[in-house]
Amino acid sequence: MSVLKVEGVSKSFDSEKIIENISLELHEGELVSLLGVSGGGKTTLFNIIAGLSIPDEGDVWLDGEKVTGQAGTVSYMLQKDLLLPYRTILDNVALPLRVLGMKKKEARQIAVPYFAEFGLEGTEKKYPAQISGGMKQRAALLRTYLFSIKRGKKVALLDEPFSALDMLTKQAIHEWYLDVMEKIQLSTIFVTHDIDEAILLSDRIYLLTGKPGVITKEIVIKEPKPRRKDFHLTEEFLRYKRTILEHLSYDFVEKR
């Protein structure tokens, strides 16, 4: 069953078309990547799904309900962790619960048990400046997750969430991420320009190419989850990567 559906969405800024006729679907518990070069309209589409901007054409459906241009329906996470420096990690992750009208004490009680699950034990009373970049992204994901469980709609949008991390931290956080996703059910749209990351984490990948951005290809990653630790070193992985690269570089050359 599809939890989120984008239908024929187009958007222009200053009469320049950024994305055109984008349709995609997200099934329950699935992770779908939106892969494309920078400036290809990924973030525009992302903002439309988040309800922060209204498409010129097309609609966004969540659980069969039209939510086009409606904020407060899906949670998102960005490359910047956006943790508020003056709130402890606990109060930061509990923020969506507070925004949705919950009392402080109750919000904390709900948030605390997830700290262990997300590998964040011991950071509850710390401030963001006191923990590492990887830990901050974990906290940001927990905040996103808490929003989705409170809304009863477990859909999350992740816009290049790990792209600011160094390579080793990124590798560690990928493993952690797949591990957490085994435990919690979160249907996710994952925006990235990192091909390896997309293959490693996704069930399906949409390639967003051209100007205006169009979805030109859909790739299903058949490798079952949980994934092997050395999946990124296998033949299959390379085959996926080759397909994607051929497709993207063609687009890249065309555009210049």
């Binding site: 988040a50 309800g51 922060l52 904020a71 407060g72 329906t73 899906v74 949670s75 998102y76 960005l78 910047k80 956006l82 508020l84 003056y86 709130r87 923020l95 969506p96 507070r98 925004v99 949705l100 929003f147």
Partner: peptide, 28 residues
């Protein structure tokens, strides 16, 4: 921070919630 404000808007926060959670503590 504009991104923080957008994040709260995406959570469905109203203008006074944005004031209380972001603007005021940020201006201290």
């Amino acid at each position: 921070d504009k991104d923080s404000i957008n994040l709260l808007r995406a959570m469905g926060a109203g203008r006074w919630q944005i004031f209380g959670y972001i603007k005021f503590p940020g201006a201290l």
